[in-house]
Design a binder for these strands. Structure first.
Lengths: 346, 346
DNA sequence: CTGAAAGCGCTAACAC
DNA sequence: GTGTTAGCGCTTTCAG
């Protein structure tokens, strides 16, 4: 069972060690280990045996330098605390799963300076691709992405001028669509609740699209409430109470994410409000969590995992040598009315 | 403002390009760019100017090969869909933030074979450290981790025989403690709800510790229910209904995670059960979400972020040249009684 | 303070 | 099928 392999070596093993142990040239060892070119079954076995016996692990650093191929994909996201980004990452990992490619994560904390640093760091590894959240970047960052020859996929947002490929939704359009859905149900006194984050361009665009459509109907947002940090569910409750106490005439609350929306929904349910008769609610993202709530919050699914998957596919295709550049995949988010937005039966 | 930098080059730039552009030797350019050794302010400026002008991005592959230093930290986790792992990752990223180190993520989908592959792949990059979830691995994997000279930190679970360093909690002990807390409140007819996942060793150990303590009190788990896939919150509701319909005498439900626990809590609240008078509930993990629920679910905080942080610190310290090996950090999880476990006022 | 030479461990491109 | 020869782009080391 146990071959009691030779004493663990001080010096990391190299191809040369395998070559010597197997009596096969380094080059052929390399071929065997990479499954490249034709090698006779006999030598192949000799090499594989020797490699396993020694516990050889190839050095990809050297391999990458020699071949100028790096099977790393840089994924640059603002945060890991907001579940939407791990979801994107999961999509990336899923699409990369069958390939040789590996994701490397960089977190920017919504800071353009940090993004610049992370991007620079990532590019210095000459990855097979860069997947980066958002379409707004510092001029420096854009410059780097333009200058590099690695494929760049900007994700989540398509409203703007991508450097190369984009996969995402139009947040402006999403805001408009939600406003239309709300107006259609006859709501008129609308409050907005969101995050206090000047650099969240996607939320901003949604809000812009939203107010734009309201304006066309001669309406404007009646009251607003913002938060930062803390448990989103809890904040949702608190903000909802605050805004309703302040503006009791409100008949609809539009939340910039589902978690605060869910908090609001729980609060309103407890207060015994007639929903959506007296008060309608909607969130944004379509998170799985909503499935388990007492009532289904209206929302708009943004398919984060699909976005990650598609972005990774673009990178994988190009890493595989396929030509490309400037791909554009716009995902159409759909409104889910749930139990908190539909007042009129269809 | 804009220097209109020279035409973006076809061939990626090298040190040599910067050297030629600045009239400084490659070696000195390298020194400047890495902030190593003494360089006169004059040449330093010349170099920095040329580099920026050209838009030079160093090639870490080559650097790593030459210096045999790789500022990557491998983080190997079973999944990204369960928020606990992104949380660990966030802790790692946080601790690494000030350093030169970068996390690289590998996902195993709870499969030992996949773990082996990912580990091999990661080790072939000769990272500065490996942070890997769990303490149970295939013999092959353990072998690789033993053989390598990169620091290995096994995280989340300390019950077992670590290869090198460990940071985590004792799940067996966690199970026992929860059982004690439950018994202390006088509950006797206890049901267990968990995930259908034979390879989730941590859940298994918790369950073992739990039943062990019940056994000492002459009790055993009255009924059980398992799920896999889907929205945990929703599953929590469904399972709770199922187990209570089947075993109406149950007076306590122990959930293997907070999400299903929260689902159960919502269900029970809606049913109007007297909680915790008639029925007590407890989850596991201490997720932030619980803060916003109508009632606070009893749970046990596992401090995932702290675990990630500490693991990353160990790696960073050793990458910085500090001696080490075999570090062990056991985090003591604390029971939070919340509103669903305390029957007797203190 | 600065430079020249010699690799790091592997693979591309040819020979045989 | 298999081996040989040059590097990949950087840093280490050692001279000046």
């Amino acid at each position: 069972m146990n071959d009691t392999p030779t004493i663990p070596p001080r010096r990391p093993l190299t191809l040369r060690d395998v070559s010597e142990a197997s009596g096969v040239s380094e080059m052929t060892v390399s071929r065997v280990l990479r499954n490249r070119g034709d090698v006779s079954a006999a030598t192949r076995d000799k090499v594989l045996d020797a490699a396993k016996q020694l516990g050889y692990v190839p050095n990809k650093i050297a391999g990458a330098l020699a071949s100028s191929r790096v099977n790393l994909v840089a994924v640059i996201i603002p945060s890991l605390s907001n579940m939407v980004f791990p979801e994107v990452l999961a999509g990336v990992a899923e699409a990369l799963d069958g390939t040789e490619l590996q994701p490397v994560v960089g977190v920017t904390h919504y800071s353009p300076e940090q993004e610049e640093k992370v991007l620079y760091e990532m590019l210095s590894w000459r990855p097979s691709g860069v997947i980066i959240a958002g379409i707004e970047h510092s001029e420096q960052s854009r410059q780097m992405m333009r200058a590099t020859d690695v494929p760049v996929v900007e994700i989540m947002d398509v409203d703007g001028d991508p450097v190369d490929a984009v996969v995402g939704i139009s947040h402006r359009r999403a805001g408009r669509k939600m406003a239309e859905a709300i107006l259609k149900q006859g709501f008129e006194n609308i409050g907005f609740l969101g995050t206090q984050m000047p650099l969240d361009h996607r939320a901003r665009k949604r809000f812009e699209g939203f107010t734009e459509t309201l304006a066309k109907a001669g309406l404007e947002v009646m009251d607003q409430e913002f938060y930062s940090g803390g448990s989103a569910l809890l904040k949702g409750r608190e903000m909802t109470k605050a805004i309703l106490d302040r503006s009791p005439d409100i008949d609809f609350l539009y939340y910039s994410n589902d978690l605060i929306g869910a908090g609001g929904l729980l609060y309103c349910t407890e207060q015994g409000f007639d929903i959506p008769g007296r008060l309608g609610l909607a969130g944004f993202n379509g998170v799985e969590l909503l499935q388990g709530l007492p009532r289904k919050l209206a929302t708009m699914d943004t398919e984060r995992q699909a976005i990650g998957r598609e972005a990774a596919r673009i990178v994988a295709a190009r890493a595989g040598g396929a030509p490309g550049g400037g791909e554009r995949i716009e995902i159409e988010p759909k409104v889910t009315l749930g139990d908190t937005l539909r007042r009129y039966k269809p």
